[in-house]
């Protein structure tokens, strides 16, 4: 990508000094470019550009869907949402969900990736099994977890009963519902993190390991002293990407604990936006909420760009 970003030899503004054929070529290519771009550009402006602008505008207005009236609201919508206890609770839940799912599944993912990095028979099968939760639909798989969490005849409580523990009513108990959602999040998140780690591991220099071998380092020792420090850039990357993803968790929360969960104990920011916009039809309020979420994600993205030095890569 770096190569093409070097100024192209054919440049539009220098074309006057060129023979006519070159100039015509430049015009042809420019026209072809716009023709090929047009469908995508129209689609993106219509379905992304315009909606984003609208979100920003609507967040600062009172928009009545039924009457179709719009009036300026200033910061009213933001005052309203931060006065709403459930919304503040949902921010807290989002943070809790992220705080627990991301590090746990990262830790499991890095260990699995290191183990899988050896030349092994059946490696592809292990990798497939670990990665499978990521490719299958969250809704379908959340229903399976729901069935396993079933308090009376579900798998988990049956296993717990075998060791003499009476399991809780996982998803309908306010003090356990979030843990159950987090467990599903951890399980689902391992695969993709493992893949990124695997890709990073394959780029690591072999010499350090040879040196460690000569020094007689054990496997765990090499993992702590060689692999983990070398993986630090990948770890930052995975960390921020996973945080951004975890902040937008919706499907599994919606399915596992409908209506925000028992006593709103699992409601997250995305669910509140959904509820405000599509069951209460308070459009402007929902837009203000989505801007708050956007603020969180923007900060995370900026941090990640800082950490990964992404800007230089793009340009």
């Amino acid at each position: 990508m770096v190569a093409t970003l070097a100024p192209a030899p054919v440049k539009a503004d220098a074309s006057e000094k060129r023979p006519p054929r070159r100039r015509r070529l430049g015009r042809d290519r420019s026209r072809a470019a716009w023709l090929m771009l047009a469908p995508a550009a129209i689609h993106l402006v219509w379905w992304i550009g315009f909606p984003v602008l609208a979100t920003f505008v609507l967040a600062f207005t009172h928009y009545d869907v039924l009457a179709g009236t719009v009036s300026w609201a200033g910061l009213d919508n933001f005052r309203e949402i931060f006065a709403d206890e459930v919304w503040n609770l949902s921010i807290w839940h989002t943070v809790v969900y992220t705080f627990f799912t991301v590090p746990v599944s990262m830790a499991i993912a890095v260990v699995l990736a290191v183990l899988l990095n050896a030349k092994l028979r059946a490696r592809a099968w292990y990798r497939a099994a670990i990665f499978m939760p990521h490719v299958t639909a969250t809704v379908a798989i959340a229903l399976v977890w729901m069935w396993m969490f079933e308090p009376n005849i579900g798998l988990f409580n049956a296993l717990l009963a075998m060791v003499g523990v009476a399991g809780p009513a996982w998803l309908s108990d306010p003090s356990w519902a979030m843990s159950a959602v987090i467990a599903v999040g951890v399980w689902k998140g391992i695969g993709v993190k493992m893949l990124i780690y695997l890709a990073a591991l394959q780029g690591l220099p072999g010499e350090l390991y040879e040196a460690a071998d000569i020094d007689g380092a054990s496997g765990p020792r090499k993992f702590w002293s060689v692999t983990l420090p070398l993986l630090r850039p990948a770890t930052f990357f995975v960390f921020v990407v996973s945080m951004i993803d975890a902040f937008q968790v919706f499907d599994q929360v919606y399915v596992l604990t409908p209506q925000g969960g028992p006593a709103n104990s699992t409601t997250v920011m995305t669910y509140e936006i959904y509820r405000t916009a599509f069951s209460e039809f308070r459009i402007s309020t929902a837009c203000a909420q989505s801007l708050v979420l956007f603020g969180f994600l923007l900060v995370l993205t900026l941090i990640s760009r800082r950490l990964t030095g992404r800007d230089e890569d793009v340009n």
Binding site: S30, V52, I244, Q248, C287, F294
Partner: peptide, 26 residues
Amino acid sequence: PFKGRTVVFMGVLAMMMIPTYTKIVP
């Protein structure tokens, strides 16, 4: 090559960063 290519590309990059919830209501 065409005029405004960089701008269009930056636009595409910016749109990639937009989270679902910032656009779904509109």
